[in-house]
C-alpha cells in the first residue's frame, strides 16, 4: 500500500517534486491501480518462467570497431549550458 512517506521517497528517487494537491491525487490513483494489480496475484503462474524477451532471439554482437557517430560539437549544440568542450553544471565540490 502506497503511503505519503513512500510517495515522497519515490519522488526523491526520481528527482521529481509534486505539489500537495498532486500528491493527494497521485496517492488516490495509486490506490486504484494497486487494487487492480493486486487481482493479478490470484492468477496462478506456478512453473511459468519470467519472460525475458518477446522474440526468442539470441543476440550476436557485432565486431568491436571504433566509430565516431557524432562530433562533440554536434552533441554540445543541444545542451542548455556548455563550455567549449563540456556540459556545464553547478559546482559539485566546494
Amino acid at each position: 500500500m502506497m503511503t505519503p512517506e513512500g510517495l515522497t521517497a519515490l519522488e526523491q528517487l526520481n528527482e521529481l517534486r509534486l505539489t500537495d494537491a498532486e500528491r493527494a491525487q497521485t496517492l488516490s490513483i495509486f490506490g486504484d491501480m494497486e487494487a487492480r494489480e493486486a487481482a493479478l496475484q490470484e492468477i496462478p503462474t506456478d512453473g511459468v518462467e519470467v519472460m525475458v524477451h518477446v522474440m526468442p532471439l539470441t543476440n550476436v554482437l557485432r565486431d568491436d570497431v571504433q566509430k565516431q557517430p557524432f562530433t562533440r560539437e554536434s552533441l554540445l549544440e543541444g545542451a542548455p549550458e556548455h563550455t567549449d568542450d563540456s556540459w556545464q553544471v553547478p559546482r559539485l565540490v566546494k
Binding site: M2, G6, L7, L10, E11, L13, N14, L16, L18, E22, T26, I29, F30, M33, E37, L40, Q41, I43, T45, V48, E49, V50, M51, V54
Partner: peptide, 28 residues
C-alpha cells in the same frame, strides 16, 4: 510524472516480485 512514479514503485524492493516479475510471468 505519474507513470514514472508508478514504474519506480513496481520495481522497488518489496514489490518487484509481486508486481514486475508477476507481470512478466503473465506476459509469458
Amino acid at each position: 510524472q505519474k507513470r514514472i512514479l508508478l514504474g519506480t514503485f513496481v520495481l522497488s524492493s518489496g514489490y518487484y516480485d509481486a508486481y514486475y516479475n508477476k507481470a512478466l510471468k503473465l506476459r509469458q
